[in-house]
Computed example of a mutant assay.
Amino acid sequence: MVLKHLKHLFFAFAMLPLLVQPAFAHVVWFDYKDGEYELIFGHPESGPEDLDASKFRSATAYDLNKQVVPVEIDRQDGISVVPQGDIAALTALYDNGYWLRNPGDSSSQNISQQEAEAVNYANVTNFVKYTKALYDWSEPISQPFDLPLEIMPLQNPLQVTAGETLPIQVLYQGKQINDALVEYNGETVNVNAEGVAYIPVGEDGLQPIEASYTSPKDNAPGVSHATTLTAQAVPEPSALLGLGAFGLLAFIGKRRLNSSRGY
């Protein structure tokens, strides 16, 4: 049955190529707005796409001391994280599954692990997405969060203003690498010999920073890692008092996610 289905996939490639953006270009990131910590999937420079909630794996919240804060996951219309306390950071894992590439036209098709095994993972890549969002800053928060691929800000990103640059490094399995692809606002950012990339901050503030990497040591299937870093100040709880009773109820009650999708 699996082999028969794969034959149909290859036939579809030949008859109707499915031209898509490179899968590594898709990332996930958190967007905080009006009390919501929304997990978004897509391209930061062009906006969200539909998110497949079944591919969401985990989210972890941390306080200023980097202690884990319990969370609730709202799966209505996507993924929204609801921390059960004050937080300074969020991380998440999204496994976008196995993608079969057609060498003829570089189109891709999402397949199951069973289907990937049936072709011995030939031309198959597993695309895995991570994200780290910072909402406050402290010495513990400045340290790595042990994501397989992680962007490390080398100074407090919440204090970088328009016209300045934020120096960052990329870690893979906890070690600095110099050959990750770093992107910002749809443009590739140069990584120098010391492994440092300088992110220019514009009038709109710091936008999601992206990095992707495929280890040459990965066996079949290959694993393409993509990660993001965002930093966004959130209002203090006392600031909510200025909203008034109606505004406060709307602030607390609004926890839904704009649907997104992708590969």
Rank of each mutant, 00 (worst) to 15 (best):
T188G: 02
Q143K: 15
K175G: 03
E164M: 10
A226Q: 07
Q84P: 00
A193F: 00
V189T: 10
D63G: 06
E183Q: 15
L18T: 13
T228E: 03
A14W: 11
Y94T: 06
S238N: 11
Q159V: 09
D52G: 03
N110Y: 15
F30R: 02
T227Q: 05
G262Y: 04
G202W: 01
N126S: 11
V2G: 07
Y37Q: 01
G262S: 09
G104L: 15
R75S: 11
E210I: 12
Y98R: 04
Y94D: 04
T91Q: 05
L93H: 14
T131H: 00
T227A: 12
A61H: 00
S138F: 07
D146K: 13
T131L: 03
T125F: 02
L9P: 00
A12C: 09
N178F: 01
D204Y: 07
L93F: 12
Q159I: 05
V196L: 03
L240T: 03
Q76E: 10
Q232K: 14
N258H: 14
D34K: 15
V196T: 15
S138C: 05
L149Y: 02
E150C: 07
H5G: 05
N126L: 14
L147Y: 04
A92C: 09
L18P: 02
Y263A: 14
R261V: 06
N123P: 03
